[in-house]
């Protein structure tokens, strides 16, 4: 019998660890809202790795529970290759209504900036009227964050600039001002951010204050480093768990997915892809 440790990958990037760690949060019976960009890669990996028949819904109005076609990775959630591989195609309102009816059990989202209550900003950096940096706007992320049962944020860069005490603009509702403010605003009881996954760690949310705290560390990251790179005074779990490194199988699927994504014009930073075969 092979000793389990030997199956773990030794060299991998923080970005790869983030994708793998996110993939492990999916349960076999989840109904997943499949959003553009990093979430799309995570769901793609999950279908190849563990759950080929995972039920996924996309905001353009399409539902699937089939393994991706091998010839071409979709370049986005609107790729026409998705259509003949789907069980339902309708209007955007169909997909968003699935969400509003409370049928989406899990969603991943990436965002530009996040605060300690898990609110996201993809609208503007600086004053709204005089932006330093204009961002795209939220698209469907506003309702995904508002209405999915479990929301998992993916932040590819764990730094003070991305993790801030207070946002310039709330595009995507997390726990708003913490405590019961999200419920008071009218969002479903069983909804809201469950975790933030970064190259360094997994944060979860205090059940009472709804503030994000450090729950588990990715290998090679330290508590001090996470605290240093977070823009608020981050609270730490009494016992910080250690997350296992990617298995050889996980990293193989992860790298294949990344490679296919690059072929479809995703931009991945060189430091994320240094172990990809050229």
């Amino acid at each position: 019998m092979v000793i389990e440790e030997e199956n773990y990958c030794k060299e991998y990037t923080g970005f790869e660890m983030m994708l793998v760690s996110a993939c492990r949060q999916i349960r076999h019976d989840d109904v997943v809202f499949n959003a553009f960009h990093w979430p799309f890669l995570v769901v793609h990996m999950a279908k190849l790795l563990r759950f080929p028949n995972l039920f996924t819904v996309m905001e353009v109005g399409l539902s699937q529970n089939e393994v991706p076609k091998p010839d071409k990775m979709p370049y986005s959630i609107v790729d026409p290759v998705l259509v003949p591989n789907s069980v339902f195609v309708g209007d955007s309102i169909d997909a968003l209504s699935i969400l509003q009816r409370g049928e989406i059990t899990l969603a991943f989202l990436s965002t530009s900036i996040i605060d300690k209550y898990g609110n996201g900003n993809t609208t503007v950096i600086g004053p709204y009227k005089k932006p330093i940096y204009r961002l795209p706007g939220g698209g469907g992320a506003t309702e995904i964050a508002g209405l999915a049962n479990r929301l998992i944020w993916l932040l590819d860069d764990h730094s003070k600039y991305r993790f801030v005490e207070k946002l310039d603009f709330i595009t995507d509702p997390g726990y708003l001002n913490g405590y019961d403010s999200r419920i008071k605003a009218g969002y479903p009881l069983n909804s809201g951010p469950e975790a933030i996954i970064t190259p360094l760690c997994i944060m979860r949310f205090d059940p009472f204050t709804k503030e994000a705290y450090l729950d588990a560390l990715h290998p090679n990251a330290t508590i001090e480093q996470v605290k240093e790179e977070t823009g608020w005074n981050l609270k730490i779990a009494d016992e910080v768990r250690d997350i296992k490194p990617p298995t050889m199988r996980e990293i193989e699927i992860c790298r294949k997915t990344m490679k296919d994504a690059i072929d479809q014009y995703y931009i991945l930073k060189p430091e994320w892809t240094k172990y990809l075969e050229k």
């Binding site: 509003q100 508002g146 999200r182 969002y187």
Partner: peptide, 14 residues
């Protein structure tokens, strides 16, 4: 009616 934009800054900007 929709359930999703309360509490965000999309609600009343610009």
């Amino acid at each position: 009616p929709i359930r999703s934009i309360v509490g965000t800054d999309i609600f009343d900007n610009p």
